[in-house]
Design a binder for these strands. Sequence first.
DNA 1: ATTATTTTTGACCATTTGGTCAACACGATT
DNA 2: AATCGTGTTGACCAAATGGTCAAAAATAAT
Lengths: 208, 208
Amino acid sequence: MKAERTTTAGKKPSRIQQRNRSRILDAALDVFSAHGYRGATLDQIAMAAGLSKPNILYYFNGKEEIHVTLLSQLMETWLDPLVEMDAEGEPLEEILNYVRRKLDMAKDLPRESRLFANEILQGAPRMRPHLQADLKPLFDQKCAVIQTWVDQRKIASIDPRHLIFSIWATTQHYADFDAQIAVLIPSDDAFAGARQHLEETFRKMLAP
Amino acid sequence: MKAERTTTAGKKPSRIQQRNRSRILDAALDVFSAHGYRGATLDQIAMAAGLSKPNILYYFNGKEEIHVTLLSQLMETWLDPLVEMDAEGEPLEEILNYVRRKLDMAKDLPRESRLFANEILQGAPRMRPHLQADLKPLFDQKCAVIQTWVDQRKIASIDPRHLIFSIWATTQHYADFDAQIAVLIPSDDAFAGARQHLEETFRKMLAP
DNA sequence: ATTATTTTTGACCATTTGGTCAACACGATT
DNA sequence: AATCGTGTTGACCAAATGGTCAAAAATAAT
């Protein structure tokens, strides 16, 4: 019988296992988000994790498994703000809160945002299953919620799908295109201005 | 004296030179935009161009030169819609026209959009000079124009910088995140819906 | 202390990849 | 047809890279 210390962990991961696995994942997040999947090397990840390359391969069966693990973990975090959007809440405030939460994520988790962006840009080769299985149903459900708000005249008439796209695009932009923004708004916290701008614009956009 | 048939072309490029160089650049655009810089290989580019690898290296001094050439050419096309925005025109219509043009570019030139997005995502290692030299001054100039429109109450009070970011984000999103959109809006032309949605939302956003 | 188990690593390997080069083919000019 | 500059390529190369493995350290269990 093989070790199988990977995805379907046999029993209980030792203290040292937990520590090293999370070290590796954190280092891999650094490297993958900065260079993309193919641009990242195991040596870089090993270096960043403070472990030897063979040791990395002791904890993960290969480069791809590290990447897939990161993507899977990310999915949960990524969808959470949308899950939080409450059909019973006050419509405008629910949507604005969603915008705020997404912008917070772009600010606080830029590596995750870029990892995601990289994967989608390349055609989502390793993530399409997750998108289909997790994102799609949630998306459809929340679109329906927003549509009821539109039908009840609680917010302006708008296509819920493209509204969500606009929210994703405008918030993630500040993480994914940071290198460009840094050139255009030097030595300034773009997020402060972004928060106010998005608050105001989405408010106007949605006013019934 | 060396050949120097690269950037600073000695004299006149022959018919065959022009043909093959553009073939290579077109193939490289395919490959780079699909896999990123490091993910792209000269063999893939050569294959896509219908030429041998050594032949590719006969026309370009290396992988990086091909990439840089693409980026340089792209810059002009990319900035053009913003250049077109006329300070003398009707403010709201000028901005909406800019949105429309940017969306057209996302639809018609998705490879270029992804090439650009890939480069910025990786921190713009090969493009920062262009951003500084070309994009930055244009950005500042057009921000000033928009600011005068705001000051004259021609459009709503808004931060021109973040307005432009929002336009970039929402339009390019449809090209860059196509893989995700295809999952969420299956077998549908997202651009048709996007055009109407963006038209309406930016109109509301900017109404004085 | 001794055995058993889990971690760690130096030394290797096979493949991929960017790039070189000498030789060869082509096309225009004489 | 011989010549000369332009194009083209098969054969190679060195470095990078994902991955393997047997042996050595640590660590835990007895």
